[in-house]
Structures are given as structure tokens and as C-alpha cells.
């Protein structure tokens, strides 16, 4: 019975895209996390992996809110999730200037701690948590950031 329930759950998720749209404000980050948690929980994957997907999406959205939209919540962010070919894929779409986080160099953490640096940890966390990250900019102002976790 449990197997059947799980299978039904799995089939309802396979290949299906789901989306949440938020106003670009840090107060909505928890909505994005809940959305990702809910979608990822539908697949039989380890909670540790779900947590990695959640933090990665949080960091990606936080960067958009802070740096691209500069806390102007008249902007919106779309977050779409999809599970296919053993990959959990989250695509974040938003308007604004192009910024490719995959091009940002990862700090040397030993130096970071020795010099008591502050900030700049969002992208490293995002990268470490996922298997693949792709950024696309379509002129004039459409961006999509795709975060992929192999399950």
C-alpha cells in the first residue's frame, strides 16, 4: 500500500513542472524554500539532498533580490521545479541586468577565515550544493539560472 502511494506520488511528479512566483523581497524567501521542499519531498530522496537543493535556491534568489533587483519588490522572481532523467532541476527566471554566478571565483576559505572576511558566501554555498549550474541571459533583460541536482 505504501509502495503504491509512493509510486502514485512519484508519477504525479515525474516530468511535471511546477512554479511559484514571488515578489522580489527577502521576506518571501521562506515561501520559495517551502515550495522546493514540498516538490523535492515528493521524490524518494535523502533529506540531506533536499536541504542542499533548498539552500542553493535560497542563495540564488537572495542574490537576485539583493544585487539584481536591489530590494525593489515591484520585481518578480519565478521559480520552477522539474524532476526528469534522475535530475531535480530548479529554474529561476527574473528580469534585470545579467550576472553570471558561475563565472564568480570561489574564495579560498583558508584565506577567508584568516582575514576574517565578510560576505560573498552565497555563491560558494550555491555551487557546492548542486551538481550543475547554468546561467542564460536573453537581451534585453531576461535571465534564467538553472540549478541541477543529480539524484
Amino acid at each position: 500500500m505504501r509502495l503504491l502511494t509512493n509510486l502514485t506520488k512519484l508519477f504525479s511528479i515525474l516530468g511535471k513542472k511546477d512554479k511559484i512566483t514571488i515578489k522580489s523581497s527577502t521576506k518571501n524567501l521562506h515561501l520559495v524554500r517551502d515550495f522546493v521542499e514540498q516538490k523535492a519531498s515528493g521524490i524518494n530522496i535523502d533529506q540531506k539532498i533536499i536541504n542542499q537543493i533548498i539552500i542553493s535556491v535560497d542563495e540564488a534568489c537572495t542574490n537576485v533580490i539583493k544585487h539584481t533587483h536591489k530590494f525593489n519588490d515591484s520585481n518578480e522572481i519565478d521559480v520552477e521545479s522539474e524532476y526528469k532523467d534522475n535530475q531535480f532541476i530548479v529554474t529561476i527566471r527574473y528580469k534585470g541586468e545579467a550576472f553570471d554566478p558561475t563565472k564568480k571565483e570561489t574564495p579560498d576559505m583558508k584565506e577567508y577565515f584568516t582575514k576574517f572576511k565578510v560576505g560573498g558566501l552565497g555563491i560558494p554555498l550555491m555551487k557546492k550544493s548542486m551538481d550543475k549550474i547554468e546561467f542564460k541571459h536573453i537581451k534585453p533583460d531576461s535571465n534564467s539560472l538553472t540549478l541541477i541536482k543529480v539524484i
Binding site: 524567501l29 533548498i54 539552500i55 535560497d58 542563495e59 537572495t62 576574517f116 572576511k117 558566501l121 552565497g122
Partner: peptide, 16 residues
């Protein structure tokens, strides 16, 4: 229940 880099940043900002 949860921490992101913004939270980690606060500890980095005050430890020294």
C-alpha cells in the same frame, strides 16, 4: 530550523 549564508555572515562579522 534553517540557516543560509546571510546567517553565517553575521558570525563572521563579529568574531574578530
Amino acid at each position: 530550523s534553517y540557516i543560509s549564508s546571510a546567517g553565517l555572515g553575521v558570525f563572521m562579522a563579529y568574531i574578530e
